[in-house]
Design a protein around this nucleic acid. Structure first.
Lengths: 184, 184
DNA sequence: CAGTTTAGATGATGTAACTCATCTATAAAT
DNA sequence: ATTTATAGATGAGTTACATCATCTAAACTG
């Protein structure tokens, strides 16, 4: 079976990055094996090292992939909402939804990858996160509120909601949403 | 050499929990081996399983140990400060200091263990975190501000500051401190 | 003080997973 | 059409670690 077309190989590579981005956010880099990733794409572990230097080298690629999707979502919100303030409000509400809490694999990559990025040696990966946090902070800026602070609150609340049991987990989502969407 | 006194053995056990609490916060449970923990206490890996069921069983004990120190520190602040508001302000400033960011091993166990607790199966460990987050939220309550929200902001900011590179990391500490200590 | 118990040391075992060597069948190149 | 290059499969090799078996010497017990 081996030897697929160039186009097919490129698509497989892309799907590998995508699968890694999802699995890394879901379980953390350490709890995902190369086999897990390749199996998610429907391949075996063998082809991995022809496409990637190592498992670690996959982290910045996976992160970038997920960040780009996130950026696209922000643009989308701006395009659909009546104004930027409405888009911000929408974002906050979705960010602190039970759905987002319960599906980290599809969720915010900053929150999902933050622990692994804290411990990585790759400055590329760290710089990438730094830039995206900064971007998010700017996007969340409001008149009386520092967007960077809002970003930290969102990330903290999501992580706490994911770790805590009921009923606190739900309360965190509710109360932080209330605080961030209140008029000042 | 083996067979030490009962008192010595108990103290060794205690020191093992303490070492684990520090190492787990510093590197995460997965990046700490049983050997690492025992070596930190000056022992070999052999005696571990006489004291603990497994490495996993150490997590709730280590967490409780660290939480108790944290609670003691809060009491201390209340005792030393002129009033509760001043104690809160002190806590926020220390929480968002560069020293706290750079020494997770001695720092907030909620922030330090949150990722490992998110993935644990132990409801005991999860319930413990839930309770302590709730406690911290209550302690941080202020007139115009929900303390649970403040707690999430603190935790999020600390985690972001630990993951991000300069200069954003410092900016996060500064700007979140400013926001949380501003009069409303 | 003799006998028993046990904290901890040493060494073995088993497993998981990263990485690499080799193979094969097909896509690209000539 | 023939040759060559390579995506991916298969199957180790290696390392790291959790856990367990056994040993020993000193602390407890009576």
């Amino acid at each position: 079976m081996p030897r697929v077309s160039r186009a097919q190989a490129a698509q497989n590579r892309e799907r590998t990055v995508e699968a890694a981005a999802e699995l890394f956010r879901e379980r953390g880099v350490d709890h995902v094996s190369v086999q897990d990733i390749m199996a998610a794409v429907g391949l075996t572990h063998g082809g991995f090292y022809r496409q990637f230097e190592s498992k670690e080298a996959l982290l910045p690629e996976a992160a970038r992939h997920a960040y780009d999707r996130m950026a696209a979502r922000l643009s989308n919100l701006d395009a659909q909402a009546v104004d930027h303030t409405a888009a911000q409000r929408q974002y906050i509400q979705r960010y602190l939804s039970a759905a987002h809490r319960d599906h980290p694999g599809q969720g915010c990559p900053i929150a999902g990858l933050i622990q692994d990025i804290t411990r990585t040696d790759s400055t590329e990966t760290r710089d990438l996160l730094t830039e995206r946090v900064s971007d998010l902070g700017k996007w969340l800026n409001q008149d009386g509120r520092d967007g960077l602070v809002t970003a930290c609150t969102l990330i903290g609340a999501l992580l706490v909601a994911r770790a805590a049991g009921s009923p606190l987990s739900d309360q965190v989502l509710e109360r932080v949403t209330a605080a961030l969407t209140a008029a000042e």
